[in-house]
């Protein structure tokens, strides 16, 4: 295993730019590479993306590998796994990190099996073991009830990291690095899927993941009409509405509003949890919020173990008065 060296980050591209997860990963990769005293490389895969290599260097990479091919315009398992297999075999990094996104979740495990190594998905934290120098991979298990620390005994050690696990480094245009192009060498007949259509979800107002204030409702809200009140408060605070799983399953809110292990991960400044119990699986999507406020009529609800402020009471009585007062405070 001695010839494997360095940390590699797979950098996703979104709308012709480095995706936010890519900049976060470069920050994380930089930290790991520095601890190991090794190089950080970035891999950019796509079509017409060459200009982003310098950007990856500005965010912390020492080297940027670019695999540019029209066949790589859209993410597809076969083509991306094949391109990444080629890069990894050429560069031989000790560690490869990807984002826990719809791309990373598909690419990382398939690539790990292809390379005869293992991956950990959805890591909350990555660290270098001081003795073995192996990658300690901490991830949620049992729906967020537990966390597990894994090591992988083969190279490269592959992990995906959840969005917002770390803040990106400051962009530094003066950073110097090497850009290396890699020929994808793809055989079009080996790509067994075709992307027919991409359908973006419609969003009004602030994106849930970007919101500084999130008002989240649970089963206790009881109806789509109930969520209207949460939306009103969210509008007032320029925030977004989220939900636990039951309101999504019952179609009171769109599936995209779900926060939790099986939904979105949010890290707002203020998280107002209304009529939700605070199950582990939900909390694993919001527990990094700066301030959590709970409104629940059950004083024993788990959410009060997580919240900074709380009211034990019926949300139907609490919320209108709360919204009114806030309106007044904001007008001052």
């Amino acid at each position: 295993m001695a010839e494997y060296k360095g940390v590699m980050t797979f950098c996703e591209v979104a709308e012709g730019k480095l995706a936010s997860i890519a900049t976060e990963l470069l920050g994380y990769g930089r930290k790991l590479a520095d601890e190991l005293g090794q190089e950080l490389s970035a891999v950019l895969v796509g079509s017409g993306i060459g200009s982003l290599a310098q950007e990856a260097i500005a965010f912390g990479a020492d080297k940027a590998y670019v695999v540019d091919d029209t066949l790589l315009k859209d993410y597809q398992t076969d083509s991306y796994v094949s391109a990444m297999e080629k890069v990894v075999k050429e560069v031989m990094p000790q560690i490869l990190i990807l984002g826990q996104t719809s791309i990373g979740r598909d690419l990382a495990p398939r690539l790990a099996f292809r390379l005869n190594t293992a991956a950990s998905l959805g890591c909350l934290e990555l660290a270098i073991d001081p003795e073995s120098k192996l990658l300690l991979q901490t991830k949620p298990a049992y729906g967020g009830n537990a966390q597990a620390v894994f090591i992988c005994q083969s190279y490269p050690q592959i992990a995906t990291v959840r969005p917002k696990a770390i803040a990106p480094l400051e962009r530094d245009e003066s950073r110097k690095g090497e850009v290396i192009t890699v020929d994808a060498g793809l055989d079009p007949s080996a790509i067994r899927t075709k992307v027919l259509e991409k359908v973006p979800e419609k969003i009004e107002g602030v994106r849930l993941e970007d919101a500084e204030v999130v008002i989240a409702g649970g089963r206790g809200i009881g109806s789509a009409e109930g969520f209207k009140q949460l939306e009103e408060l969210a509008r007032m605070l320029k925030g977004a509405v989220g939900a636990t799983r039951p309101p999504c399953d019952n179609e009171w809110v769109p599936a995209g509003a779900q926060i939790g292990l099986t939904g979105k991960i949010v890290t707002p400044d203020l998280y107002i949890a209304v009529a939700l119990s605070g199950s582990s699986q939900h909390m694993s999507g919001c527990s990094s919020s700066k301030t959590i406020v709970a409104i629940n009529k059950d004083a024993e609800a788990n959410i009060f173990r997580e919240a900074r402020f709380g009211i034990v009471g019926d949300w139907k009585k609490v919320l209108p008065a709360f919204a009114d007062k806030i309106k007044g405070l904001l007008a001052e």
Binding site: S102, T193, L196, E197, K198, G256
Partner: peptide
């Protein structure tokens, strides 16, 4: 997908 969904033929 993170943005919505995509239609894939396989």
């Amino acid at each position: 997908t993170d943005e919505g969904y995509e239609v894939i033929e396989v």
